[in-house]
Protein backbone atom coordinates (compact mmCIF):
# COMPACT_ATOMS: atom_id res chain seq x y z
CA UNK A 1 0.00 0.00 0.00
CA UNK A 2 2.80 2.41 0.86
CA UNK A 3 4.52 1.56 -2.35
CA UNK A 4 1.29 2.44 -4.10
CA UNK A 5 1.20 5.83 -2.44
CA UNK A 6 4.74 6.60 -3.49
CA UNK A 7 3.88 5.46 -6.97
CA UNK A 8 1.00 7.89 -6.95
CA UNK A 9 3.32 10.72 -6.01
CA UNK A 10 5.58 9.98 -8.92
CA UNK A 11 2.63 9.48 -11.27
CA UNK A 12 1.40 12.97 -10.49
CA UNK A 13 4.87 14.40 -10.75
CA UNK A 14 5.25 12.85 -14.17
CA UNK A 15 1.62 13.38 -15.06
CA UNK A 16 2.11 16.23 -17.45
CA UNK A 17 5.09 14.53 -19.04
CA UNK A 18 2.85 11.55 -19.68
CA UNK A 19 0.45 13.86 -21.48
CA UNK A 20 3.29 15.12 -23.55
CA UNK A 21 4.37 11.62 -24.31
CA UNK A 22 0.99 11.12 -25.96
CA UNK A 23 0.97 14.52 -27.63
CA UNK A 24 4.55 14.64 -28.88
CA UNK A 25 4.50 12.25 -31.82
CA UNK A 26 1.07 13.40 -32.94
CA UNK A 27 2.29 16.99 -32.89
CA UNK A 28 4.25 16.96 -36.11
CA UNK A 29 1.66 15.32 -38.28
CA UNK A 30 -1.15 17.59 -37.10
CA UNK A 31 0.93 20.70 -37.55
CA UNK A 32 2.02 19.92 -41.06
CA UNK A 33 -1.39 18.83 -42.31
CA UNK A 34 -3.17 21.88 -41.01
CA UNK A 35 -0.46 24.24 -42.20
CA UNK A 36 -0.69 23.01 -45.76
CA UNK A 37 -4.44 22.51 -45.49
CA UNK A 38 -4.83 26.22 -44.80
CA UNK A 39 -2.79 27.17 -47.80
CA UNK A 40 -4.32 29.17 -50.58
CA UNK A 41 -1.16 29.52 -52.59
CA UNK A 42 0.50 26.43 -53.98
CA UNK A 43 4.01 25.78 -52.65
CA UNK A 44 6.42 27.04 -55.23
CA UNK A 45 9.75 27.22 -53.43
CA UNK A 46 12.43 24.59 -53.23
CA UNK A 47 10.83 21.85 -51.13
CA UNK A 48 14.22 20.48 -50.23
CA UNK A 49 15.27 23.63 -48.43
CA UNK A 50 15.52 22.85 -44.71
CA UNK A 51 16.54 24.58 -41.51
CA UNK A 52 15.44 26.96 -38.81
CA UNK A 53 15.63 30.76 -38.94
CA UNK A 54 15.35 32.66 -35.67
CA UNK A 55 14.07 36.22 -35.86
CA UNK A 56 13.68 38.65 -32.95
CA UNK A 57 13.43 42.39 -32.32
CA UNK A 58 10.96 45.25 -32.81
CA UNK A 59 7.35 44.55 -31.95
CA UNK A 60 6.30 47.02 -34.65
CA UNK A 61 8.07 45.00 -37.33
CA UNK A 62 6.88 41.73 -35.72
CA UNK A 63 3.49 41.88 -37.46
CA UNK A 64 5.10 42.19 -40.90
CA UNK A 65 7.80 39.65 -40.09
CA UNK A 66 5.33 37.13 -38.72
CA UNK A 67 3.02 37.45 -41.73
CA UNK A 68 5.88 37.13 -44.23
CA UNK A 69 7.21 34.13 -42.28
CA UNK A 70 3.81 32.41 -42.42
CA UNK A 71 3.57 32.72 -46.21
CA UNK A 72 7.24 31.86 -46.64
CA UNK A 73 6.72 28.59 -44.77
CA UNK A 74 3.85 27.70 -47.08
CA UNK A 75 6.18 28.13 -50.04
CA UNK A 76 9.11 26.43 -48.29
CA UNK A 77 7.52 23.80 -46.04
CA UNK A 78 10.89 22.42 -44.98
CA UNK A 79 12.01 25.66 -43.37
CA UNK A 80 10.98 26.68 -39.87
CA UNK A 81 10.93 30.42 -39.12
CA UNK A 82 10.58 31.48 -35.48
CA UNK A 83 9.73 35.12 -34.82
CA UNK A 84 9.85 36.83 -31.40
CA UNK A 85 9.24 40.39 -30.22
CA UNK A 86 11.74 41.44 -27.55
CA UNK A 87 11.67 45.00 -28.88
CA UNK A 88 14.31 46.69 -31.05
CA UNK A 89 16.85 47.04 -28.23
CA UNK A 90 16.15 43.62 -26.72
CA UNK A 91 16.46 42.08 -30.16
CA UNK A 92 19.86 43.70 -30.75
CA UNK A 93 21.11 42.34 -27.41
CA UNK A 94 20.35 38.78 -28.53
CA UNK A 95 21.63 39.52 -32.04
CA UNK A 96 24.92 40.79 -30.64
CA UNK A 97 25.26 37.66 -28.51
CA UNK A 98 24.85 35.56 -31.65
CA UNK A 99 21.55 34.03 -30.53
CA UNK A 100 19.44 35.11 -33.51
CA UNK A 101 19.81 35.10 -37.30
CA UNK A 102 17.76 38.22 -38.02
CA UNK A 103 16.99 41.24 -35.83
CA UNK A 104 14.01 43.47 -36.64
CA UNK A 105 14.36 47.16 -35.84
CA UNK A 106 12.20 50.28 -36.03
CA UNK A 107 15.35 52.44 -35.93
CA UNK A 108 18.90 52.05 -37.28
CA UNK A 109 21.37 50.10 -35.13
CA UNK A 110 23.33 52.14 -32.55
CA UNK A 111 27.11 52.26 -32.21
CA UNK A 112 27.24 50.35 -28.91
CA UNK A 113 25.06 47.63 -30.45
CA UNK A 114 27.46 47.39 -33.39
CA UNK A 115 30.40 47.19 -30.94
CA UNK A 116 28.71 44.40 -28.98
CA UNK A 117 28.19 42.42 -32.17
CA UNK A 118 31.77 43.05 -33.28
CA UNK A 119 33.07 41.75 -29.95
CA UNK A 120 31.43 38.43 -30.77
CA UNK A 121 32.67 38.49 -34.38
CA UNK A 122 29.18 39.05 -35.73
CA UNK A 123 28.97 40.79 -39.06
CA UNK A 124 25.60 41.81 -40.52
CA UNK A 125 23.70 43.05 -43.53
CA UNK A 126 21.41 46.03 -43.00
CA UNK A 127 18.12 45.69 -44.88
CA UNK A 128 15.50 48.46 -45.00
CA UNK A 129 12.13 46.74 -45.51
CA UNK A 130 9.68 49.62 -45.93
CA UNK A 131 8.37 52.89 -44.53
CA UNK A 132 6.01 53.38 -41.66
CA UNK A 133 3.82 56.42 -42.37
CA UNK A 134 0.95 57.67 -40.22
CA UNK A 135 -1.95 59.66 -41.61
CA UNK A 136 -4.08 62.11 -39.64
CA UNK A 137 -7.63 62.12 -40.98
CA UNK A 138 -10.72 64.35 -40.61
CA UNK A 139 -14.29 64.35 -41.93
CA UNK A 140 -14.64 65.34 -45.65
CA UNK A 141 -16.84 68.31 -44.66
CA UNK A 142 -14.13 69.62 -42.37
CA UNK A 143 -12.85 72.39 -44.63
CA UNK A 144 -10.88 74.32 -42.04
CA UNK A 145 -8.37 71.81 -40.69
CA UNK A 146 -6.85 70.47 -43.89
CA UNK A 147 -3.47 71.64 -42.64
CA UNK A 148 -2.27 71.40 -39.06
CA UNK A 149 1.08 72.11 -37.47
CA UNK A 150 2.80 69.61 -35.19
CA UNK A 151 2.31 72.13 -32.36
CA UNK A 152 -1.45 72.18 -32.99
CA UNK A 153 -1.60 68.38 -33.08
CA UNK A 154 0.25 68.32 -29.78
CA UNK A 155 -2.22 70.85 -28.35
CA UNK A 156 -5.08 68.53 -29.34
CA UNK A 157 -3.61 65.23 -28.13
CA UNK A 158 -1.37 66.01 -25.15
CA UNK A 159 -2.46 64.72 -21.72
CA UNK A 160 -3.01 68.23 -20.36
CA UNK A 161 -5.04 69.27 -23.41
CA UNK A 162 -8.04 71.51 -22.79
CA UNK A 163 -9.18 71.41 -26.42
CA UNK A 164 -12.91 70.71 -26.51
CA UNK A 165 -13.86 72.52 -29.70
CA UNK A 166 -12.03 73.23 -32.95
CA UNK A 167 -11.96 76.91 -32.02
CA UNK A 168 -9.54 76.04 -29.20
CA UNK A 169 -7.05 74.67 -31.75
CA UNK A 170 -6.52 77.79 -33.84
CA UNK A 171 -8.24 81.19 -33.68
CA UNK A 172 -10.62 81.37 -36.63
CA UNK A 173 -11.60 77.70 -36.56
CA UNK A 174 -15.37 77.22 -36.13
CA UNK A 175 -16.95 76.27 -32.82
CA UNK A 176 -17.49 72.58 -33.67
CA UNK A 177 -16.97 70.06 -30.85
CA UNK A 178 -13.86 67.95 -31.47
CA UNK A 179 -14.06 64.18 -31.16
CA UNK A 180 -10.87 62.11 -31.05
CA UNK A 181 -10.25 58.64 -32.46
CA UNK A 182 -7.04 56.60 -32.39
CA UNK A 183 -5.43 53.18 -32.02
CA UNK A 184 -5.43 51.62 -28.54
CA UNK A 185 -2.62 52.19 -26.08
CA UNK A 186 -1.04 48.78 -26.73
CA UNK A 187 -0.32 49.42 -30.38
CA UNK A 188 3.05 50.45 -31.80
CA UNK A 189 1.23 53.10 -33.81
CA UNK A 190 0.07 54.73 -30.56
CA UNK A 191 3.63 54.61 -29.19
CA UNK A 192 5.05 56.23 -32.29
CA UNK A 193 2.38 58.92 -32.59
CA UNK A 194 2.69 59.94 -28.94
CA UNK A 195 6.47 59.97 -29.20
CA UNK A 196 6.72 62.31 -32.18
CA UNK A 197 3.63 64.45 -31.64
CA UNK A 198 3.22 64.71 -27.87
CA UNK A 199 6.94 64.35 -27.29
CA UNK A 200 6.69 61.54 -24.77
CA UNK A 201 5.97 57.91 -25.61
CA UNK A 202 2.59 56.57 -24.41
CA UNK A 203 1.57 59.97 -23.11
CA UNK A 204 -1.83 61.17 -24.37
CA UNK A 205 -5.16 62.55 -23.15
CA UNK A 206 -7.44 59.70 -22.19
CA UNK A 207 -10.80 60.92 -23.50
CA UNK A 208 -10.41 59.57 -27.02
CA UNK A 209 -12.22 56.71 -28.69
CA UNK A 210 -9.62 53.93 -28.78
CA UNK A 211 -9.82 50.98 -31.11
CA UNK A 212 -7.28 48.48 -32.40
CA UNK A 213 -9.50 48.08 -35.42
CA UNK A 214 -8.70 50.70 -38.09
CA UNK A 215 -12.18 50.23 -39.44
CA UNK A 216 -13.74 51.58 -36.22
CA UNK A 217 -11.59 54.71 -36.45
CA UNK A 218 -12.57 55.08 -40.10
CA UNK A 219 -16.34 54.82 -39.47
CA UNK A 220 -16.05 57.07 -36.43
CA UNK A 221 -14.26 59.88 -38.27
CA UNK A 222 -16.36 59.48 -41.42
CA UNK A 223 -19.55 59.83 -39.38
CA UNK A 224 -18.76 62.95 -37.35
CA UNK A 225 -18.02 66.40 -38.77
CA UNK A 226 -15.84 67.38 -35.81
CA UNK A 227 -13.86 64.13 -35.59
CA UNK A 228 -10.11 63.62 -36.00
CA UNK A 229 -8.16 60.35 -35.96
CA UNK A 230 -5.02 58.67 -37.31
CA UNK A 231 -3.85 55.36 -38.74
CA UNK A 232 -1.46 53.83 -41.29
CA UNK A 233 -1.14 55.42 -44.73
CA UNK A 234 -2.05 52.20 -46.52
CA UNK A 235 -5.44 52.18 -44.85
CA UNK A 236 -6.10 55.79 -45.82
CA UNK A 237 -5.18 55.15 -49.45
CA UNK A 238 -7.87 52.47 -49.60
CA UNK A 239 -10.51 54.84 -48.18
CA UNK A 240 -9.58 58.17 -49.78
CA UNK A 241 -13.19 58.86 -50.78
CA UNK A 242 -14.53 58.76 -47.20
CA UNK A 243 -11.98 60.97 -45.42
CA UNK A 244 -9.64 63.90 -45.80
CA UNK A 245 -5.97 63.51 -44.92
CA UNK A 246 -4.47 66.42 -43.00
CA UNK A 247 -1.27 67.97 -44.36
CA UNK A 248 1.29 68.20 -41.57
CA UNK A 249 3.43 71.28 -41.06
CA UNK A 250 6.66 70.48 -39.24
CA UNK A 251 7.99 74.01 -39.60
CA UNK A 252 8.77 73.77 -43.31
CA UNK A 253 5.28 74.23 -44.68
CA UNK A 254 2.42 71.73 -44.87
CA UNK A 255 3.11 68.33 -46.48
CA UNK A 256 0.28 65.97 -47.37
CA UNK A 257 0.89 62.28 -46.74
CA UNK A 258 1.38 60.15 -49.84
CA UNK A 259 3.61 57.31 -50.97
CA UNK A 260 5.97 59.94 -52.43
CA UNK A 261 6.22 62.23 -49.42
CA UNK A 262 6.64 59.25 -47.09
CA UNK A 263 9.27 57.74 -49.35
CA UNK A 264 11.33 60.92 -49.65
CA UNK A 265 10.77 61.55 -45.92
CA UNK A 266 9.47 65.08 -46.52
CA UNK A 267 6.32 64.02 -44.63
CA UNK A 268 7.67 64.55 -41.14
CA UNK A 269 7.61 63.60 -38.32
CA UNK A 270 5.12 60.84 -39.09
CA UNK A 271 7.26 58.67 -41.38
CA UNK A 272 10.31 56.52 -40.77
CA UNK A 273 12.00 53.49 -42.36
CA UNK A 274 11.89 50.03 -40.72
CA UNK A 275 14.83 47.64 -40.82
CA UNK A 276 15.89 44.05 -40.65
CA UNK A 277 19.47 43.14 -39.66
CA UNK A 278 20.69 39.83 -41.06
CA UNK A 279 23.70 38.04 -39.59
CA UNK A 280 26.25 37.59 -42.41
CA UNK A 281 27.07 34.06 -41.29
CA UNK A 282 23.36 33.16 -41.41
CA UNK A 283 22.88 34.77 -44.83
CA UNK A 284 25.33 32.24 -46.22
CA UNK A 285 22.70 29.57 -45.45
CA UNK A 286 20.37 28.99 -48.42
CA UNK A 287 17.17 29.09 -46.32
CA UNK A 288 18.04 32.48 -44.78
CA UNK A 289 18.92 33.87 -48.21
CA UNK A 290 15.60 32.56 -49.55
CA UNK A 291 13.71 34.21 -46.67
CA UNK A 292 15.35 37.62 -47.21
CA UNK A 293 14.69 37.39 -50.96
CA UNK A 294 11.07 36.45 -50.27
CA UNK A 295 10.75 39.44 -47.91
CA UNK A 296 12.10 41.86 -50.55
CA UNK A 297 10.21 40.17 -53.41
CA UNK A 298 6.67 40.71 -54.69
CA UNK A 299 4.95 38.57 -52.03
CA UNK A 300 6.88 40.21 -49.21
CA UNK A 301 6.14 43.74 -50.48
CA UNK A 302 2.45 42.93 -50.78
CA UNK A 303 2.40 41.79 -47.14
CA UNK A 304 4.44 44.80 -45.97
CA UNK A 305 1.80 46.99 -47.59
CA UNK A 306 -1.06 44.91 -46.15
CA UNK A 307 0.12 45.33 -42.56
CA UNK A 308 0.14 49.09 -43.08
CA UNK A 309 3.64 50.01 -44.26
CA UNK A 310 4.66 51.71 -47.47
CA UNK A 311 6.88 49.45 -49.57
CA UNK A 312 9.84 50.92 -51.48
CA UNK A 313 10.01 51.68 -55.16
CA UNK A 314 11.30 48.83 -57.32
CA UNK A 315 14.49 50.81 -57.91
CA UNK A 316 15.15 50.92 -54.15
CA UNK A 317 14.73 47.16 -53.86
CA UNK A 318 17.15 46.78 -56.76
CA UNK A 319 19.68 48.88 -54.86
CA UNK A 320 19.20 46.76 -51.73
CA UNK A 321 19.82 43.61 -53.77
CA UNK A 322 22.91 45.22 -55.26
CA UNK A 323 24.18 45.86 -51.73
CA UNK A 324 23.75 42.17 -50.89
CA UNK A 325 25.53 41.11 -54.05
CA UNK A 326 28.45 43.39 -53.27
CA UNK A 327 28.79 41.68 -49.90
CA UNK A 328 28.69 45.03 -48.09
CA UNK A 329 28.14 44.51 -44.38
CA UNK A 330 27.80 47.00 -41.53
CA UNK A 331 25.51 49.99 -41.12
CA UNK A 332 25.07 52.81 -43.62
CA UNK A 333 21.84 54.10 -42.05
CA UNK A 334 23.30 54.68 -38.60
CA UNK A 335 23.56 58.47 -39.01
CA UNK A 336 20.86 58.87 -41.62
CA UNK A 337 17.84 59.96 -39.58
CA UNK A 338 15.59 62.04 -41.82
CA UNK A 339 17.28 60.98 -45.07
CA UNK A 340 15.33 58.87 -47.60
CA UNK A 341 16.44 55.24 -47.89
CA UNK A 342 16.95 55.61 -51.65
CA UNK A 343 19.33 58.53 -51.18
CA UNK A 344 21.36 56.82 -48.45
CA UNK A 345 21.78 53.74 -50.63
CA UNK A 346 22.81 55.89 -53.59
CA UNK A 347 25.31 57.84 -51.52
CA UNK A 348 26.85 54.55 -50.41
CA UNK A 349 27.33 53.63 -54.07
CA UNK A 350 24.50 51.15 -54.67
Amino acid sequence: MKAFQLACLSVVALGSLGLIGCGGPAADSTTSTSATGGSTTAPKGDPNLKGTISVDGSSTVFKASEAVAADFMLAFPGVNVEVSFSGTGGGFKKFGAGETDISNASRPIKQDEIDAAKANNIDFFEVPIGYDGLTVVVHPENTWATQLTVVELKKIWEPTSTVKSWKDVRPGFPDVPIKLYGPGTSSGTFDYFTKVIVGKEKSMRTDFQASEDDNVILTGVAGDKGAIGYFGLAYYEENKDKLTAVAIDNGNGPVAPSKETVTDLSYQPLSRPEFMYVKAEAYARPEVKAFVEFFLGTEGQAIVSEVGYVPFETATYDRIRKMFESGKTGSIFQDSTGKPVEAVLEAAGF
Partner: peptide
Amino acid sequence: IVVGAVGFIVKSPS
Protein backbone atom coordinates in the same frame (compact mmCIF):
# COMPACT_ATOMS: atom_id res chain seq x y z
CA ILE B 1 10.23 35.67 -22.70
CA VAL B 2 13.64 36.43 -21.20
CA VAL B 3 15.00 32.91 -21.67
CA GLY B 4 13.80 32.81 -25.25
CA ALA B 5 10.18 31.68 -25.69
CA VAL B 6 9.26 32.46 -29.28
CA GLY B 7 6.42 34.79 -30.35
CA PHE B 8 5.48 33.00 -33.55
CA ILE B 9 6.28 29.37 -34.26
CA VAL B 10 4.28 26.74 -36.15
CA LYS B 11 6.18 23.59 -35.17
CA SER B 12 5.42 21.90 -31.86
CA PRO B 13 8.43 20.99 -29.76
CA SER B 14 9.40 17.33 -29.85
